[in-house]
């Protein structure tokens, strides 16, 4: 059922919902952007639907709600340890289709990789329900259509934002009651059906081709261009890497916590092992790794779909103006060329 809901009414609903849920949405942090007098848009808990930034893409993805940047796993003393606690509240996340699909990719990584469920991920993920936000615009870095991630049915509510009114589709019965007295309307969520940016995915059929792809000259370009900053992977909804380490409280060297913190495959020390040996030594190596991971490896391993969902945030956040979609297209051109040479 769908309803026309005023902002005021929605805020009342939100107030009710907040008794049971932590409600996260992309919100604006004024003047907190990378450059002076620019804003930062990222996920945080909201107090009003007016806070939700629905007509600009957020700089960071909703993954940080479920896969926190810094997450304490357990606390330890000399003789015992205690698992970190989370509260009983459920979680409601406002998200676009690409992000909901992105979180599905995270599910695969955290819950299905090697038949081993990651409990710290799972305990948050199990609480999550989504509020689907309509994409009112196809932003010029989006390529969800090419990645097949422009649609989803994993949502409880779907919302189209208007100036002072919202159109709300209620899919999950749990939420019907909140809107019962509202005016029923004929609203169905519209998924984006075309992107300005089209991406052609590379067809890498065998190990031989993969080997050739490894040696492509195009990667070398990135030695001069990519600064290894990791902004792309931090913004990416599907990047899931982290480093686990023990933090010792300085007041008592035997007490501390084990925590995990995001890591980036674009950083120089990502593949560093004891003894200082590292197997991806240049920005070109790391760029190749990330690209292939997003549009080759993951699918090879898990089958159905590519890891990248085409949200385009990596492109938006790269201050060296490296476009990921253009990089994939370049790769595909090269693969096609190589293919022709073989034939």
């Amino acid at each position: 059922m769908s309803y026309a809901v005023s902002i005021e009414k929605m805020d009342k609903v939100l107030k009710e919902l907040k008794k049971k849920y932590r409600v996260y949405a992309p919100i604006r942090f004024e003047k907190r952007g990378r450059y002076s007098d620019t804003d930062l848009i990222r996920y945080a808990e909201i107090d009003s639907v007016k806070d939700v930034v629905y007509n600009e893409k957020s700089d960071f993805s909703p993954k940080e709600v479920i896969h926190p940047i810094t997450q304490t796993l357990f606390h330890f003393t000399e003789y015992e340890y205690r698992e970190s606690q989370i509260d009983d509240k459920e979680i409601l996340i406002f998200a676009h289709p690409c992000d909901i699909n992105g979180i599905k990719r995270l599910d695969t990584i955290f819950l299905e990789n090697g038949n081993n469920e990651d409990v710290y991920y799972k305990r948050l993920r199990d609480k999550v329900k989504f509020v689907l936000m309509e994409c009112q615009e196809d932003w010029d870095t989006c390529f969800c259509i090419s990645m097949g991630s422009n649609q989803t049915d994993d949502y409880s509510l779907a919302i189209k934002f208007g100036e002072d009114q919202l159109s709300v589709e209620v899919k999950d019965n749990e939420f019907e009651g909140f809107f019962a007295s509202e005016e029923e309307i004929d609203f169905t969520y519209k998924f984006v059906t075309a992107n300005q940016e089209e991406v052609n995915l590379p067809k890498i059929d065998d190990k031989e081709m993969l080997k050739k792809v490894y040696d492509l000259k195009m990667w070398e370009d990135y030695n001069a261009r990519c600064k290894d900053c990791g902004a792309c992977t931090s913004a990416c909804v599907t990047c899931s890497c982290f480093t686990t380490s023990d933090v010792i409280y300085s007041e008592n060297g035997r007490v501390g916590e084990r925590r995990r913190v995001w890591a980036s495959c674009q950083h120089e020390d990502f593949t560093e092992m004891a003894g200082g040996h590292s197997f991806r030594n240049t920005p070109a190596d790391r760029m190749r790794f990330r690209t292939l991971h997003k549009v080759y490896d993951y699918k090879e391993r898990f089958g159905e779909e590519h890891m990248c969902v085409g949200c385009g945030r990596c492109t938006d956040r790269c201050n060296q103006l490296i476009s990921f979609s253009k990089t994939i297209n370049k790769l595909t051109e090269e693969v096609n060329r190589l293919q022709k040479e073989v034939n």
Partner: peptide, 14 residues
């Protein structure tokens, strides 16, 4: 520091 920080951990006070 804010310009390079990949996660927006450093930001400018407004």
């Amino acid at each position: 520091c804010a310009t390079v920080c990949p996660t927006g951990a450093w930001t400018r006070n407004a």
